[in-house]
């Protein structure tokens, strides 16, 4: 066992902020020491309530998250936050600005906030967001909020990571057909209509409600009563309605635990992580992190470029040569 990884894991388990921060970085950078520390910490993770906050850019996700942190702290809960913002597809650079709105508890030692760039991932999270969540869980946080990038309609990876998904809507973004569309509108366990003081808030809430009335939600995993997503109104800027969001999330957790949904999602989450690790290992066997081919297959590359080899052939040969 790597001594550095062991002491890092130990630091995280003690809640040491430098260790938490460093391990998230190592995981994010595919460092083997980070992978080993995550392995050690795995049994400690899995106890936090992971709440995803998603919605279009500018709907108030960060402000809502800030007020949820405050409400959770008032209830004595410890809180972790992973806030994802987009990386540039051209330079890899990013402006991670979610912290600007998350200042209520910025020096509270029971709150740990981490910003991540998407680094090429397209589903609203980064490929290592799950690792960051795991680190915060292992550090003993009761609640972990995951704020996605501002999403459009189909970036729904958060549903694979969160126990409870909060979809944040605002007035005047479209007509009632938007509420019927597949994707984002299907993944909500809770709808929040933020900026509820703007005109049009009633209409959004009504559109969503009308859409929910048409749905035949699948039965709960235990065959019991399905969860019916509540539609909540907030004015996050003023903190109005935020406690109700936290309470609804707690009700969703309680329903999930009794209905079997909690473990269904947790099983899916670990399976997703295994799949992601496999994809990543195979990809990194063939490619450098920046996407250029590894030296080992320079010859193959020549044939590929010259058209003597198809992409299918090249992938087949690389898989045949794959060593973990």
């Amino acid at each position: 066992m790597d001594a550095t990884a062991a002491s890092l894991a130990d630091g995280v388990a003690r809640g040491d902020r430098r260790s938490i921060a460093r391990l998230i970085s190592l995981a994010e950078n595919d460092d083997p020491i980070g992978a080993e520390a995550l392995r050690i910490l795995h049994p400690r993770a899995g106890k936090a309530h992971v709440i995803g906050i998603t919605g279009s850019p500018g709907t108030g996700k960060s402000t809502l998250t800030d007020r949820l942190i405050e409400a959770a702290r008032r209830r004595g809960k410890t809180v972790g936050v992973v806030a994802v913002d987009p990386s540039s597809p051209y330079t890899g650079g990013a402006i991670l600005g979610d912290r600007i709105r998350m200042q209520s508890r910025s020096t509270d030692p029971a709150v740990f906030i981490r910003s991540m760039g998407t680094r090429g991932a397209l589903g609203g999270l980064s490929s290592h967001t799950a690792d960051a969540v795991k680190v915060l869980e292992a550090a003993g946080k009761d609640l972990v909020f995951v704020e996605t990038v501002g999403v459009g309609q189909a970036e729904v990876d958060v549903v694979r990571l969160a126990d409870t998904v909060v979809v944040v809507l605002v007035p005047n973004l479209g007509d009632d057909v938007q509420a019927v569309k597949a994707g984002l509108m299907e993944i909500a366990d809770l709808f929040v209509v933020n900026k509820g003081d703007l005109s049009g808030a009633d209409k959004v809430a009504a559109d969503v409600e009308a859409n929910l009335m048409l749905a035949h939600p699948p039965a709960a995993p235990d065959g019991g009563v399905p969860w019916s997503p509540p539609i909540l109104r907030t004015i996050a800027e003023r903190g109005e309605g935020v406690v109700a969001v936290l309470e609804a999330a707690a009700r969703h957790r309680a329903w999930s635990e009794t209905s079997g949904e909690w473990s269904r999602r947790r099983v899916r989450r670990v399976l997703d992580q295994v799949r992601a690790l496999l994809e990543r290992k195979v990809t990194l066997f063939a490619f450098e992190p920046d996407g250029t081919p590894r030296p080992a297959w320079k010859a193959l590359l020549g044939d590929l470029v010259a058209g003597r080899l198809s992409p299918q052939d090249a992938a087949g040969r690389l898989l045949a040569a794959f060593k973990p």
């Binding site: 990386s87 540039s88 402006i95 991670l96 600005g97 600007i100």
Partner: peptide
């Protein structure tokens, strides 16, 4: 400018 140079910039306001 730092973003355009490929850095991850955290801005806190």
């Amino acid at each position: 400018a730092l973003r355009d140079a490929g850095f991850e910039v955290i801005y806190t306001g």
